[in-house]
Simulated scan of single mutants.
Amino acid sequence: MTSEPAIETRFFAFESDFVDSLRCIPMIVRYKLDTCRVKVQLADWAKFNYQEKDDLAEHPCHSAAEIEAYAAYVNELVWKYTNTVPSLLKSLDPAWVYTYVPAEVREKAQEWNCPVISANQWIQLDVLERFALVKLSRSGHEGRNFPRAMVEFGLAVAC
């Protein structure tokens, strides 16, 4: 169990181009997958039906029992469609819990000509917003939603 309060299910406006169909993994699900350290490939996600995807967004994943149940449900779904079990994240760098702005977020803001995020602004964001900015900053992730997130979270007027 984390020291953070439970995360309410919500979708961000920057996800609006896919959230109705859930064709991509929304941040709320990505957060929960990281919490239980399970890695789901987009190809596997695409095989889940809409209700299963929605269940993954809605199911709680905060207490130790909830995290265990969530991981079991994810494993069950991946097995159902692929006859494989998902891999586990080897390590987790929860940069979203830092009280300072992670370097990768500062660098991504600079790359997109977004304003510098102060430490005070960072800690005023909720954990899911910080998680989203970290994930949108990491290499291998399409970062085009980073400026949209910055605007949505009140950190920029435009980037």
Rank of each mutant, 00 (worst) to 15 (best):
P115Q: 00
C159A: 06
D17Y: 03
V105F: 01
H59R: 15
V19D: 02
W122E: 02
E66I: 04
G154C: 08
A95P: 07
V151I: 00
D54N: 09
H62D: 06
I25H: 06
K47G: 14
E4F: 11
V19I: 15
N75P: 02
R23L: 06
A69G: 06
Y100W: 13
Y100C: 11
Y31M: 05
S63H: 02
C36E: 00
S118Y: 13
Q121N: 04
R148P: 00
H59Q: 14
R30D: 06
H141W: 12
V127Q: 10
N75E: 09
A95R: 10
L88K: 11
W96L: 01
N113I: 08
E68Q: 07
Q51V: 12
A13W: 01
Y31R: 08
D126P: 14
F14G: 06
A57N: 00
R10V: 00
T2R: 12
G154R: 07
E76G: 11
R37Y: 02
F131C: 11
K39V: 09
Y100N: 15
Y31C: 07
A132G: 06
D93N: 12
A109G: 15
L42A: 12
S16Q: 08
S21D: 10
T82E: 10
H141A: 13
H141T: 15
A13T: 07
C24R: 14
S21I: 04
E66R: 05
A132K: 04
Y98K: 15
E142L: 12
R148D: 02
E104W: 07
Y31A: 02
V78A: 10
T99Q: 15
V40I: 14
A149N: 06
A119Y: 11
E142V: 10
C24M: 14
E76I: 01
D93M: 08
E4R: 15
S63P: 07
W45M: 13
A158C: 09
R23A: 09
S16G: 02
M1N: 05
I28N: 00
L77V: 05
E104K: 13
P94A: 12
M1V: 07
C24V: 12
N120Q: 14
L92P: 03
K32W: 02
M27A: 09
R148F: 06
I28W: 00
V97A: 14
E107F: 07
P5N: 14
C61K: 01
D126E: 10
C61I: 01
C114P: 13
I28P: 00
A149Q: 03
W122H: 05
L128H: 00
W122L: 01
A6V: 05
A46R: 12
V134W: 02
R37W: 00
E68G: 04
W45Q: 13
Q110F: 04
N83L: 12
R106F: 05
W112G: 04
F48M: 05
N113S: 14
